[in-house]
């Protein structure tokens, strides 16, 4: 899916590349046919994680930080979770699709709360001031 969207995925933890190899070869390749398709990067000492603000000094590990970076290298969004709760990949895909649409329209369209591909966008401008209620209703915030 990410490949289809033209997104490069990078995974990073404090583990060495040797441990990455063993985890991929011994376990993950049993979940994902052919193994992990994206680079698994090593951040010994959490130096990169510290710069991104997601390194947990006490535990000595990185938290579940996820950053969406646009083609210009600008961070468009991030999410950080503590270790025991996994990510919602569908929501990440939705956000990427929303950011891609906004970029494609050069900001001419914005995606309101609850937007999914195919749903209505908003066109910010003087004519929309005070008129969002005509374009968007609260039930549109929820998946249907």
């Amino acid at each position: 899916m990410f490949k289809k969207l033209g997104v490069n995925v990078l995974a990073m933890s404090i583990d060495s590349m040797f441990v990455h190899k063993m985890w991929n070869d011994d376990e993950l390749s049993k979940m994902v046919k052919g193994g992990i398709p994206f680079p698994m990067l090593s951040d010994a000492g959490g130096r990169v994680g510290k710069v991104y603000g997601i390194y947990d000094e006490n535990a000595g590990v990185e938290t579940r930080g996820r950053f969406i970076i646009d083609p210009d290298g600008v961070i468009q969004g991030y999410e950080v979770l503590t270790p025991a709760v996994g990510r919602n990949v569908s929501e990440t895909i939705r956000q990427v699709q929303a950011f891609q649409l906004v970029r494609k329209t050069k900001g001419g369209e914005a995606t309101p709360s609850g937007w999914q591909p195919g749903k209505k966008t908003l066109k910010p401008g003087i004519n929309l001031v005070g008129k969002v209620w005509e374009e968007w209703t609260t039930d549109m915030a929820f998946d249907k």
């Binding site: 490069n8 995925v9 990078l10 990185e62 950053f67 970076i69 646009d70």
Partner: peptide, 21 residues
């Protein structure tokens, strides 16, 4: 990281290999 300029990039940190989630 800058090798990926020109494309969208998803950078995911995680606590560690062989953890459970």
């Amino acid at each position: 990281l800058s090798e990926n300029l020109g494309k969208w990039t998803l950078l995911c940190f995680y606590p560690g290999d062989f953890t459970f989630v």
